[in-house]
Design a protein around this nucleic acid. Structure first.
Lengths: 350, 350
DNA sequence: ATTGAGCGTGAGAGCGCTCTCACGGAGGAT
DNA sequence: ATCCTCCGTGAGAGCGCTCTCACGCTCAAT
């Protein structure tokens, strides 16, 4: 058992003490603290003074014991290690989320389950109602969390379109449109053998970006060609391995669209090693427009996603769900933008 | 006022209900749930059954109301935006911290104050005792948080040696030794005009890495030379600007040690633009050994820091402080390792 | 047999807060 | 003058838990 050392720490003032000092009842102090309008000016004033004099801060535990609200929301990032290290996506998303929170006095609790055991613990924790709402990020198809949470009746919002699971609010970027614009750009630049390195097939970001690639080809009258499609795991190593597979099967490739910048970086390294010049021999386009793109040589053309805004929207939707008695489930899709750089310079100059 | 929608959600079972089902008192259920040894086998068994049948999960608010412990610890990252986006340091550190937590049933609360107003809110929140302990990361010299927290008597551990402020436990890497080894490596490779791009002067990581650079020079009989020293802010842009300053003042530079990989990347871009070849004309060494180093051409020699381990150690120290009645203040310094890559290949072959 | 120690269990207080309800007084309508 | 309404305030219950204390039982020591 842990040693109870709480006694040694200074205990802050209680409502009771403030009430005594101000010469009113606990109920009145509570009203003032919580901004109730039903308090006369003079009483409010003396209460405020007492609060300041004692440095009173409400005890959250006591408050949430009766209100059944914790005043905090959880962000759950379910990522089997690896990406969390290298992908700038997460810090940016967190920033957006935390920015959206600033107006409300809500605390952000970050949970990063990795093992199935972690996920189980996390599910229990969440289902126990220890947070008022949940943001789920980086979901894979088979994640049990959305189901568990939905059953427990806790409001939640997902980042990225869920492939399956219960109906719920989510925020996503226009993955399909983004990759479409990337591929259209490559075709417009005179490229004819355009391959793709897709994302994981169990994530909507992977599925949708592949769909956009196929659509752009179809619009240009190009049939689907399995020898030009392969998948990675969004990491640099995964991108390199994918590029090797593509090159082995289709040496005539003259453009590659990778579903993440890191995969594009891996692909470029492999192309370089294989003696292919970028962009002269093979054009490359990435996805994310992460900071890494400017360190690459040549600099990488990439699909920019409004990641901070995505986080911000997620928070907004969740707060809406927290406030409204009627939980409205709705998707929010954010637009992407192709940022052209040297890695995909066209063959024929316009 | 917020709409109270808590009523609509299913309420989980209480101790009372479990006790009734198991035919014992609340106190006994509490003992079982908290693993007290003073319960007979048969009673324990029937309580466990009742707990499972009802899906009982203790209410944290009620528990911490009486125990005066919240069961959570905060990680406070005080970073004026910018770096949080691009620097892989933070996700890695968080991973280490959260890994160190897994044994204990502690929740991680992440706080990222950016503005002074945020910092104020955060200080109030923390001082109110809403968390049992605090991890402070990325502290700048003038941060008011350590003082506030120390005064409130809440256990905390800092990441990185504090430049000033109250005595406290901290975990740091051997910044001085790390940069020493980097500069020694450059000198051993036949470089003679070795410059440095240091970190911010208000952070110990900046101060200590500069000290290591000077020490290595002194050991080699080279005097301190202000024209070879400049400082950046750990970002890529900052590194680029610093490199430009250096090059303008000392065109004869043949090596640069940058106090972060991102600054090294910025420096390399400037060198390239200036027509200097890396490593033939100018050798470059970075610090962090972050994933970005392998995307650079040539690949970047860098000082590897055990960042995950640092997070892990911070958690360990904090838990120690939480458990022990006597808060021992002590520093932990972790070793670094120079990882040699192409960007600093020696001039004379050994 | 008698005492006492020790152990498992229950009763009950109380953590600090919110919220309902009742109450008294002011002020308007009759 | 009487009644009713409304509003500011206080009393008090109770949220779910932990923890102290007391009780009764068993079993060894006398």
């Amino acid at each position: 058992m842990a040693v109870p050392n709480s006694q040694s720490r200074p205990r802050s003032a209680t409502l009771e003490e403030v009430a005594r000092l101000a010469g009113v009842s606990r109920a009145t102090v509570s009203r003032v603290v919580n901004g109730s309008p039903r308090v006369s000016g003079s009483v409010r004033h003396s209460v405020v003074n007492a609060v300041e004099e004692l440095g009173y801060v409400p005890n959250r535990a006591a408050r949430s014991l009766v209100t059944r609200r914790s005043g905090s929301i959880a962000v759950v990032i379910t990522e089997p290690s690896g990406r969390l290290f290298s992908d700038p996506f997460f810090p940016r998303l967190l920033r957006g989320i935390s920015g959206g929170l600033s107006a409300r006095d809500l605390q952000l609790v970050l949970l990063m389950p990795e093992s199935p055991a972690d996920t189980e613990r996390t599910a229990t924790y969440l289902a126990a109602g220890h947070v008022d709402g949940i943001l789920l990020v980086s979901l894979h198809g088979d994640d049990p969390l959305p189901g568990r949470i939905a059953r427990a009746g806790i409001p939640f919002v997902m980042g990225g379109r869920p492939l399956r699971g219960p109906a719920a609010s989510f925020v996503d970027v226009d993955n399909r449109g983004g990759s479409r614009s990337a591929v259209e750009h490559l075709l417009a630049g005179g490229r004819r053998v355009v391959a793709t390195i897709g994302g994981p097939a169990d994530m909507s970001a992977g599925v949708d970006r592949l769909a956009g690639y196929r659509e752009a080809r179809a619009d240009a009258g190009l049939p689907m060609d399995p020898s030009l499609e392969t998948a990675g795991d969004f990491t640099q190593d995964g991108g390199a391995a994918a590029m090797e597979r593509l090159l082995a099967g289709r040496p005539d490739i003259d453009a590659v669209f990778a579903a993440s910048d890191l995969m594009a970086a891996g692909a470029m390294a492999v192309l370089e090693a294989a003696g292919r010049r970028v962009p002269q021999d093979v054009a490359v386009v990435g996805y994310d427009d992460s900071p890494v793109v400017t360190t690459l040589r040549p600099q990488l053309t990439s699909v920019r996603q409004p990641i901070e805004e995505m986080g911000h929207e997620m928070t907004r939707l969740l707060i809406e769900a927290l406030d409204g008695a009627h939980p409205v489930q709705r998707p929010v899709i954010l637009a992407t933008e192709l940022v052209r750089r040297a890695s995909s310079a066209g063959r024929r100059m316009p």
